Simulated scan of single mutants.
Amino acid sequence: MEKDAKIYIAGHRGMVGSALVRKLNVVGYNNLRVRPSSELDLRRQAEVEKFFELEKPEYVVLAAAKVGGIHANSSYPAEFIYDNLMIEANIIHSAYKNKVKKLLFLGSSCIYPKYAKQPMKEEYLLTGDLEPTNEAYAIAKITGIELCKFYRKQYGCDFISAMPTNLYGINDNFDLETSHVMPALIRKFHEAKVNGEDEVVMWGTGKVKREFLYVDDLADACIHLMNNYSDEIHVNIGTGEDIEIRELAQIIKEVVGYEGEIVNDLSKPDGTSRKLLDVSRLHDLSWKHKVELEEGIRRVYEWYVENEK
């Protein structure tokens, strides 16, 4: 990407989009195009087409999505599939119509089958049944990958896809009803510490394993792919390392400085037993994560304490 090129970041106010804006500015990309959802509803085809015709972005990173944890995915599957399908279809088609030079679509590791062999290679996509608790979201994200693949095949568009692992970072969603496990635990431990509570309740057994990537590392990987990758197969983005949720909770407890007990609510679901990405393709492209888990959690907690209100 040329340093003065017009780059559209879809979803620039979210955790991923804001990290992309920060990183792009740091490395010298200052001609960014962004719109808040109050001005541009990405679910509306006419609005998206008008934006592309007006701004004519040369590069696009599609980080906009409706996201959430197990509770949100299970409770609102219709919204998760509809909103995400509309967002990606409108942007990808408008990018094609307006001759965007390159587009990067961001998916999620939940696209892989529930019982996929670990670690999960890119080729495992569509080889088995999905995890029921986030099936609607996964189907939408798989569709985004396929859209990029078929626009590349039929029209020659340089549209690529990347599948990040579980992400965390500043500007995360800390709402206990809709958040993912990391921000939910950070908030729970912090509030328990402030309120002098004796225990913190954690969903499930805590024995499932998850991989976590600091969002600023993801932003760096995205820029690397935009400059160094062009193929129809998606690329996994992660650390290649995972951890049990109960171990994660212990690290967060120590970072927060909470001294009470952790209690498991076994009536709540664990989700998929393990979701570890095979990141050998990404490593072969000369990229590796920089921020280790405990350091990343410390950064997020410091930000949360400063911005919790």
Rank of each mutant, 00 (worst) to 15 (best):
E211R: 03
S179E: 09
E49G: 02
D175R: 14
I223S: 00
G169C: 03
E241Q: 08
I262S: 05
L20T: 05
L277E: 05
F51T: 06
Y124G: 06
G156Y: 10
I7Y: 03
A136W: 06
I186T: 10
A140K: 00
G144K: 00
V235R: 01
K309S: 15
S74E: 09
N236D: 03
K102G: 02
M86Q: 10
V61T: 09
V200H: 00
R299N: 14
I170P: 02
Q118E: 13
I262D: 05
V67G: 07
M182Q: 15
I9V: 07
Y155C: 14
N166K: 11
E254A: 11
D278K: 02
R274I: 08
P36K: 13
D231G: 10
E241V: 13
A221F: 09
K193E: 07
Y124C: 09
S18M: 08
Y96P: 08
F150T: 15
P183A: 02
R35V: 09
I160H: 04
Y8K: 03
Q118L: 07
I160A: 05
N195R: 15
A5C: 04
E302P: 04
P269V: 06
I297S: 09
N227C: 05
L32F: 09
G14M: 06
P77K: 10
P77H: 13
V26R: 13
V279C: 05
K121F: 03
V291S: 08
L248V: 15
D198T: 08
I139E: 10
R43K: 15
C157Y: 12
N227L: 07
K6E: 08
Y82L: 02
M86H: 07
W203M: 13
K3M: 06
V200A: 00
L218K: 02
F189V: 04
F174D: 10
I7E: 01
E197G: 04
G11H: 12
D284C: 10
I87E: 00
G257N: 05
E259H: 14
L285H: 11
S109L: 03
G69E: 12
L54I: 14
L185Q: 02
M163W: 07
A221N: 11
I297Q: 03
S94I: 13
L293P: 13
D270M: 02
D83H: 14
H289V: 12
D4R: 05
S273K: 12
S179D: 10
I70P: 03
R44A: 12
H289L: 06
